[in-house]
Simulated assay, not measured.
Amino acid sequence: MPDLTLHGYWRSSAAWRVRIALALKGLPYATVAHDLRTGAQAAAAYRACNPQGLVPALDTGEGQEAPLTQSLAIIEWLEETQAQPALLPADPLGRARVRAMAQVIACDVHPLGNLRVLKALRGDLGADEAQVAAWLARWMGDGFAALETMVAQWGGAFAFGDAPGLADCCLVPQIYAARRFGVGLGAYPRLVAIDARCAGLAAFAMAHPAAQADADPS
């Protein structure tokens, strides 16, 4: 596989998903950091890589006009070009279920709590911190409740079955975000257990925000 370069930010949940996938597949990559707090992702040079001005973006090193964008699309590309270890089940029904679990987080939960939305709540709508906290708890809680049920149906040691995969790539960063914002996790014991199990794997430790070169000093 050509040399890979991941554009991201240490605490971005979406970039973190891709880091986990790269680590699970054992793929080396270079990194370029864009500090979301300073608006670095909005710079014209980066928008040439990602017209949305968001992270992540993955330069595949294959000479395309623009890198790949959107975390799930990037991970699907990794799955198609580096099949093992697989992040999706072999059977179509299982693959659809895992994609649905991943999208609960990536499409329905995470977008409502990312930095640009929280800035809009505070700045454009005048929400105070209690209102922001209630907003986060509502949408994370809805997503976690659905995932807890899905894991009860289809999970094993991990979100789906007994090997880490795409759903875990999305779940672990969202659990981190919940703890960061003080969202209670007591109603989701299966999700908490999966997060703890993932934390014991080297790939997840390598991808953790604290292990990134651009992370704030602890």
Rank of each mutant, 00 (worst) to 15 (best):
92 P>S: 02
170 C>L: 15
146 A>H: 07
74 I>K: 12
169 C>S: 04
189 P>S: 08
2 P>G: 09
81 T>Q: 08
76 E>Y: 03
196 A>K: 07
83 A>P: 03
6 L>R: 08
51 P>D: 07
99 R>S: 06
69 T>Q: 10
155 G>W: 00
152 A>V: 04
32 V>D: 08
169 C>M: 02
6 L>F: 05
150 M>Y: 15
195 D>N: 00
9 Y>A: 10
110 H>Y: 13
200 G>M: 13
55 V>G: 06
165 G>K: 03
19 R>Y: 04
95 R>I: 02
19 R>V: 00
143 G>K: 06
53 G>I: 03
188 Y>C: 04
143 G>L: 05
161 G>E: 05
116 R>W: 13
127 A>E: 04
190 R>Q: 01
136 L>E: 09
170 C>M: 14
216 D>P: 15
65 E>G: 12
17 R>N: 08
69 T>P: 00
207 A>G: 01
93 L>Q: 15
47 R>K: 03
141 G>L: 01
8 G>A: 08
210 A>C: 11
97 R>N: 09
48 A>V: 03
125 L>R: 09
135 W>G: 07
167 A>W: 09
141 G>N: 08
213 A>S: 06
59 D>L: 10
93 L>C: 08
178 A>M: 06
87 L>K: 10
196 A>Q: 06
50 N>S: 06
124 D>V: 10
171 L>I: 11
4 L>Y: 13
120 A>Q: 13
90 A>Y: 10
104 V>L: 03
3 D>F: 15
195 D>K: 02
171 L>A: 10
146 A>P: 05
196 A>R: 11
184 G>F: 02
142 D>T: 15
127 A>P: 01
77 W>M: 03
105 I>F: 07
73 A>L: 02
119 K>T: 06
29 Y>V: 11
213 A>F: 07
126 G>V: 11
38 T>S: 14
136 L>R: 02
36 L>A: 09
28 P>G: 00
163 A>N: 07
93 L>N: 13
99 R>Q: 12
36 L>I: 04
11 R>N: 03
172 V>D: 08
206 M>N: 14
86 A>T: 13
4 L>I: 06
51 P>Q: 05
187 A>E: 10
61 G>R: 06
167 A>D: 03
61 G>W: 11
192 V>A: 12
76 E>C: 09
118 L>K: 05
179 R>I: 06
18 V>A: 00
187 A>F: 02
32 V>H: 15
55 V>D: 07
62 E>I: 07
3 D>C: 13
46 Y>E: 03
194 I>Y: 08
119 K>H: 12
59 D>E: 05
92 P>Q: 11
111 P>Q: 03
99 R>Y: 05
137 A>C: 10
15 A>V: 12
199 A>M: 14
167 A>R: 03
79 E>W: 10
188 Y>R: 12
92 P>I: 05
64 Q>V: 12
89 P>Q: 04
147 L>R: 05
111 P>G: 10
139 W>Y: 15
